[in-house]
Amino acid sequence: MNVFLKVALLCSLSVYAWGSEEKLDKVVVEKDLPSIERGAEALMNSCHSCHSLKYIKYRDLIAFGISKQKVDGWRGEQPLDTPLMAQMSEADAEQAFSTKPPDLSLMTKARDGDENYLYSYLLAYYTTAEGVVSNHIFPTTKMPDPLGMSGSPDAAQHAVIEGQARDIVSFLSWAADPHEAERLQLGKYIIGYLLVLTALFYLVKKQIWARLK
Protein backbone atom coordinates (compact mmCIF):
# COMPACT_ATOMS: atom_id res chain seq x y z
CA MET A 1 0.00 0.00 0.00
CA ASN A 2 1.52 3.30 -0.91
CA VAL A 3 2.00 6.14 1.50
CA PHE A 4 -0.60 8.36 -0.14
CA LEU A 5 -3.29 5.76 0.49
CA LYS A 6 -2.18 5.32 4.09
CA VAL A 7 -2.40 9.02 4.78
CA ALA A 8 -5.85 9.16 3.18
CA LEU A 9 -6.98 6.26 5.37
CA LEU A 10 -5.62 7.88 8.51
CA CYS A 11 -7.48 11.09 7.66
CA SER A 12 -10.77 9.27 7.35
CA LEU A 13 -10.22 7.23 10.51
CA SER A 14 -9.40 10.26 12.61
CA VAL A 15 -13.00 11.47 12.15
CA TYR A 16 -14.17 8.80 14.58
CA ALA A 17 -11.70 9.78 17.26
CA TRP A 18 -13.46 13.11 17.71
CA GLY A 19 -16.46 11.85 19.67
CA SER A 20 -18.25 13.53 22.54
CA GLU A 21 -16.26 14.37 25.67
CA GLU A 22 -18.95 13.34 28.18
CA LYS A 23 -18.80 9.87 29.69
CA LEU A 24 -22.00 8.13 28.75
CA ASP A 25 -23.31 4.69 29.65
CA LYS A 26 -23.53 2.43 26.64
CA VAL A 27 -26.98 1.09 25.90
CA VAL A 28 -27.77 -1.95 23.78
CA VAL A 29 -30.61 -0.70 21.60
CA GLU A 30 -33.14 -3.51 21.16
CA LYS A 31 -34.69 -3.91 17.71
CA ASP A 32 -37.28 -6.60 18.49
CA LEU A 33 -41.02 -5.93 18.62
CA PRO A 34 -41.59 -6.90 22.31
CA SER A 35 -38.89 -4.47 23.53
CA ILE A 36 -40.16 -1.67 21.33
CA GLU A 37 -43.74 -2.36 22.39
CA ARG A 38 -42.71 -2.28 26.06
CA GLY A 39 -40.87 0.95 25.32
CA ALA A 40 -43.96 2.46 23.73
CA GLU A 41 -45.96 1.52 26.77
CA ALA A 42 -43.42 2.98 29.19
CA LEU A 43 -43.28 6.14 27.10
CA MET A 44 -47.07 6.50 27.05
CA ASN A 45 -47.04 6.18 30.85
CA SER A 46 -44.00 8.29 31.74
CA CYS A 47 -43.35 10.78 28.93
CA HIS A 48 -46.39 11.27 26.74
CA SER A 49 -48.26 13.56 29.12
CA CYS A 50 -45.75 16.34 28.35
CA HIS A 51 -43.81 15.21 25.25
CA SER A 52 -45.15 14.83 21.73
CA LEU A 53 -43.95 12.52 18.95
CA LYS A 54 -45.42 14.55 16.16
CA TYR A 55 -43.86 12.58 13.30
CA ILE A 56 -45.38 9.30 14.52
CA LYS A 57 -49.08 8.55 14.00
CA TYR A 58 -51.07 5.92 15.85
CA ARG A 59 -51.42 4.11 12.54
CA ASP A 60 -47.60 3.81 12.32
CA LEU A 61 -47.55 1.95 15.64
CA ILE A 62 -50.10 -0.59 14.41
CA ALA A 63 -48.32 -0.91 11.04
CA PHE A 64 -45.13 -1.70 12.91
CA GLY A 65 -46.89 -4.49 14.79
CA ILE A 66 -47.79 -3.07 18.19
CA SER A 67 -51.08 -4.61 19.35
CA LYS A 68 -54.13 -2.76 18.07
CA GLN A 69 -55.83 -3.10 21.42
CA LYS A 70 -53.06 -1.21 23.16
CA VAL A 71 -52.90 1.50 20.52
CA ASP A 72 -56.68 1.93 20.68
CA GLY A 73 -56.36 2.32 24.43
CA TRP A 74 -53.80 5.10 23.95
CA ARG A 75 -55.57 7.00 21.21
CA GLY A 76 -59.06 6.88 22.76
CA GLU A 77 -61.42 8.75 20.43
CA GLN A 78 -58.68 10.18 18.18
CA PRO A 79 -58.54 8.97 14.55
CA LEU A 80 -55.73 6.57 13.59
CA ASP A 81 -53.96 9.24 11.54
CA THR A 82 -53.52 11.56 14.52
CA PRO A 83 -49.89 12.23 15.42
CA LEU A 84 -48.87 11.43 18.99
CA MET A 85 -49.27 14.94 20.38
CA ALA A 86 -48.63 15.54 24.11
CA GLN A 87 -51.60 15.30 26.43
CA MET A 88 -50.69 18.60 28.07
CA SER A 89 -50.88 21.70 25.88
CA GLU A 90 -47.58 23.39 25.10
CA ALA A 91 -48.65 26.53 26.96
CA ASP A 92 -49.56 24.59 30.11
CA ALA A 93 -46.30 22.68 29.98
CA GLU A 94 -44.36 25.90 29.55
CA GLN A 95 -46.11 27.38 32.56
CA ALA A 96 -45.47 24.32 34.70
CA PHE A 97 -41.82 23.72 33.75
CA SER A 98 -40.86 27.15 32.33
CA THR A 99 -39.67 25.46 29.12
CA LYS A 100 -41.28 23.74 26.16
CA PRO A 101 -40.88 19.96 26.45
CA PRO A 102 -39.11 19.00 23.20
CA ASP A 103 -40.68 16.70 20.64
CA LEU A 104 -39.21 13.21 21.01
CA SER A 105 -39.51 11.95 17.40
CA LEU A 106 -35.83 12.59 16.65
CA MET A 107 -34.47 12.66 20.19
CA THR A 108 -32.12 9.67 19.77
CA LYS A 109 -30.51 11.44 16.81
CA ALA A 110 -30.50 14.99 18.14
CA ARG A 111 -27.81 14.80 20.85
CA ASP A 112 -24.10 13.99 20.77
CA GLY A 113 -23.96 10.38 21.86
CA ASP A 114 -27.32 9.50 20.27
CA GLU A 115 -29.10 6.65 22.13
CA ASN A 116 -26.36 6.50 24.77
CA TYR A 117 -27.00 10.11 25.70
CA LEU A 118 -30.71 9.60 26.20
CA TYR A 119 -30.21 6.39 28.19
CA SER A 120 -27.57 7.96 30.43
CA TYR A 121 -29.68 11.06 30.91
CA LEU A 122 -32.73 9.08 32.02
CA LEU A 123 -30.60 7.21 34.56
CA ALA A 124 -28.56 10.22 35.70
CA TYR A 125 -31.12 11.55 38.19
CA TYR A 126 -30.01 11.64 41.84
CA THR A 127 -30.87 13.41 45.09
CA THR A 128 -28.27 15.89 46.35
CA ALA A 129 -27.25 16.16 50.02
CA GLU A 130 -29.69 19.10 50.27
CA GLY A 131 -32.51 16.84 49.11
CA VAL A 132 -32.83 18.44 45.67
CA VAL A 133 -33.31 16.22 42.62
CA SER A 134 -30.63 16.86 40.01
CA ASN A 135 -29.12 15.25 36.92
CA HIS A 136 -25.45 14.41 36.29
CA ILE A 137 -25.66 14.61 32.50
CA PHE A 138 -27.89 17.67 32.17
CA PRO A 139 -27.78 19.59 35.49
CA THR A 140 -30.06 22.40 34.31
CA THR A 141 -32.80 20.08 33.07
CA LYS A 142 -36.37 21.13 33.86
CA MET A 143 -37.77 17.63 33.49
CA PRO A 144 -38.81 15.89 36.75
CA ASP A 145 -37.26 12.44 37.25
CA PRO A 146 -39.57 10.28 35.12
CA LEU A 147 -38.42 6.77 36.15
CA GLY A 148 -37.65 7.25 39.86
CA MET A 149 -33.85 7.05 39.82
CA SER A 150 -33.58 9.85 42.41
CA GLY A 151 -35.54 7.86 45.01
CA SER A 152 -32.45 5.73 45.85
CA PRO A 153 -33.81 2.46 44.43
CA ASP A 154 -32.46 -0.88 45.67
CA ALA A 155 -30.67 -3.25 43.30
CA ALA A 156 -33.86 -4.93 42.06
CA GLN A 157 -35.67 -1.65 41.45
CA HIS A 158 -32.55 -0.29 39.80
CA ALA A 159 -32.56 -3.16 37.32
CA VAL A 160 -36.23 -2.54 36.53
CA ILE A 161 -35.59 1.17 35.89
CA GLU A 162 -32.61 0.36 33.67
CA GLY A 163 -34.81 -2.01 31.69
CA GLN A 164 -37.49 0.67 31.32
CA ALA A 165 -34.93 3.22 30.16
CA ARG A 166 -33.55 0.73 27.64
CA ASP A 167 -37.05 -0.02 26.32
CA ILE A 168 -37.91 3.69 26.00
CA VAL A 169 -34.65 4.35 24.17
CA SER A 170 -35.28 1.37 21.89
CA PHE A 171 -38.74 2.66 21.04
CA LEU A 172 -37.48 6.18 20.41
CA SER A 173 -34.64 4.82 18.29
CA TRP A 174 -37.23 3.12 16.12
CA ALA A 175 -39.36 6.28 16.06
CA ALA A 176 -36.39 8.38 14.91
CA ASP A 177 -35.61 6.06 12.02
CA PRO A 178 -38.57 3.76 11.28
CA HIS A 179 -37.06 2.53 8.03
CA GLU A 180 -33.81 1.37 9.63
CA ALA A 181 -34.55 -2.37 9.44
CA GLU A 182 -35.55 -2.03 5.78
CA ARG A 183 -32.44 0.06 5.09
CA LEU A 184 -30.07 -2.49 6.62
CA GLN A 185 -31.75 -5.32 4.75
CA LEU A 186 -31.66 -3.52 1.40
CA GLY A 187 -28.07 -2.47 2.09
CA LYS A 188 -26.95 -6.10 2.33
CA TYR A 189 -28.46 -6.92 -1.06
CA ILE A 190 -27.02 -3.79 -2.68
CA ILE A 191 -23.52 -4.43 -1.34
CA GLY A 192 -23.74 -8.08 -2.39
CA TYR A 193 -24.81 -7.06 -5.88
CA LEU A 194 -22.05 -4.47 -6.12
CA LEU A 195 -19.41 -6.97 -4.97
CA VAL A 196 -20.38 -9.37 -7.75
CA LEU A 197 -20.59 -6.56 -10.31
CA THR A 198 -17.21 -5.14 -9.29
CA ALA A 199 -15.59 -8.58 -9.40
CA LEU A 200 -16.92 -8.99 -12.95
CA PHE A 201 -15.66 -5.55 -13.93
CA TYR A 202 -12.27 -6.50 -12.53
CA LEU A 203 -12.13 -9.71 -14.56
CA VAL A 204 -13.23 -7.95 -17.75
CA LYS A 205 -10.68 -5.24 -17.08
CA LYS A 206 -7.92 -7.82 -16.73
CA GLN A 207 -8.98 -9.52 -19.93
CA ILE A 208 -9.15 -6.31 -21.94
CA TRP A 209 -5.84 -5.00 -20.65
CA ALA A 210 -4.22 -8.36 -21.45
CA ARG A 211 -4.52 -7.39 -25.14
CA LEU A 212 -1.73 -4.87 -24.56
CA LYS A 213 1.69 -6.43 -24.57
Binding site: I190, L195, T198
Partner: peptide, 19 residues
Amino acid sequence: IKDLYGLGIFLIVYSVFVF
Protein backbone atom coordinates in the same frame (compact mmCIF):
# COMPACT_ATOMS: atom_id res chain seq x y z
CA ILE B 1 -13.57 -0.65 -18.18
CA LYS B 2 -10.95 0.64 -15.77
CA ASP B 3 -13.27 3.49 -14.77
CA LEU B 4 -16.18 1.07 -14.36
CA TYR B 5 -14.08 -1.13 -12.08
CA GLY B 6 -13.15 1.96 -10.03
CA LEU B 7 -16.81 2.97 -9.98
CA GLY B 8 -17.70 -0.43 -8.52
CA ILE B 9 -15.24 0.05 -5.66
CA PHE B 10 -16.48 3.60 -5.10
CA LEU B 11 -20.13 2.52 -5.03
CA ILE B 12 -19.37 -0.16 -2.44
CA VAL B 13 -17.81 2.39 -0.08
CA TYR B 14 -20.60 4.89 -0.81
CA SER B 15 -23.28 2.25 -0.13
CA VAL B 16 -21.68 1.31 3.19
CA PHE B 17 -22.21 4.93 4.25
CA VAL B 18 -25.69 5.28 2.72
CA PHE B 19 -27.10 2.05 4.15
